[in-house]
Design a binder for these strands. Sequence first.
RNA 1: GUGGCUGUAGCUCAGCUGGUUAGAGUGCCAGAUUGUGAUUCUGGAUGUCGUGGGUUCGAGUCCCAUCAGCCACCCCA
Length: 450
Amino acid sequence: MPITPRTLKGFRDYLPAAAMPREWIVETARRVYRSYGFRPIDTPALEYLEILTGKGSDETDKQLYRFTDHGGRDVGLRFDLTVPLARFVAQHAQEVGLPFKRYHIASVWRGENTQAGRYREFMQCDFDTVGTTALTADIEMVLVVNDLLTALGISAFTIRVNHRAVLNGLLEKLGLAGKSAAVLRALDKLGKIGAEGVTAEMAKTAETTEQQNAALLSLASLQGDNTTILAELKKLVAGDETGERGVTELHELVAATAAAGVPAGRVQLDPSIARGLDYYTGVVIETQLDELPGIGSVASGGRYDNLASTFTKQELPGVGASLGLDRLLAALEELGRLPAVSTPADALICLFDADRRDAYLALAAQLRAAGTGVEVYPEAKKLGKQLQYADKQGFAAAVIIGQSEFDAGEAQVKHLASGESATVAYDGRDANAIAAEIRRAVDAAAVDHG
RNA sequence: GUGGCUGUAGCUCAGCUGGUUAGAGUGCCAGAUUGUGAUUCUGGAUGUCGUGGGUUCGAGUCCCAUCAGCCACCCCA
């Protein structure tokens, strides 16, 4: 009796058509991160349970995949890349040096309930700068997000920025400093449940008074251009040192990103952005696609004061963000913005004559050396079958060389999209003419796909 | 974790109040003088009706459980 092939809830297979755009995004993220000097690291998927639970809330504890390994150790699968980073830095700060800029693209696991775009195994693309409190790093975080989405071919997006110090400053003034987590979590839902919903939740979870609610909502509902919001924020937190510091930093960040060339309007102050996570202490950002606001933030992050307090006495402040790969992928697909890639190679070399196999493989080597990815059909099936395969796999071109071509010292390059064939010279050694013709087919196909 | 909706050929779905050998489109396979695909024509195969129990003379159709997907809450990427 065969075993039914199936996958666990929240875990997925990626077929080539899905894996290719995914890799494209990952490669783009990698390229952008590296262009800022972020360095790659990797850490084990499995950690000692105490590493993962040390800092986590009850919520993350519940979502944790945990078990006892064969040696009787309590272990768990990482549920984000931040905790492993904290452990990593506490363990290796001496070796890597500070400030430490790293990126980490890897899978994480959370045993929570699934939904569209929410899985139990998903990939995070984090980048962080650890070991400095300088606002430069916060500014850079915004620049990286801007560059990354731009590199992915997206132009209509808004990076919403807020500052925890501004929120905390107001909370201090209102005497709610001890209830910040509950209040912020409620405020974060403003866009979703509205002012009344937020009021109700705050009253319930943080026992806020009417005056407190009114003050908090007046802050979170602030709208307008950055200059207007900064002026209003300044008034609201006046007299509170924490809040004033936050406003100053927001002011500097807005100016700096503009100076660095981020288009006007793309960085938008939004006092309602709180981010539910407790550990944020400074700048927080969320990134919204203007054409698809409903999908939520596709890149989020912020500043934290002390990354690794559970692992070391050394204070390790930092700032970083994470790209929501799966969410972004879903969004790009919905917007029809995914590049139409279906095979990583550009052309298929038809294996016309089984006796000439080595000649075809030699041609493939020559084309690869010329920078053209090619696949050689493995067996001498009917030409029609081979072309059918080439078409189905989405190759831009098929290279056909049979007896008559070999005799004439030429090759046929068929453009699969148009059906037209070009005959180019090929003496068995110099494949540059073929490579050039394949390139033409690839370019033509790219134009077709917009 | 709580509540709701859904689950029929590879894919998208039809199958009225339970009744004989479960259908369509698309895809797939084969062929239309054996060196040219995707369009056309002809022919063909395909389903333990998610899985396991139960009710019934009889269940794709009703009940329960389970697995998986979707939606809301929660939380977040």
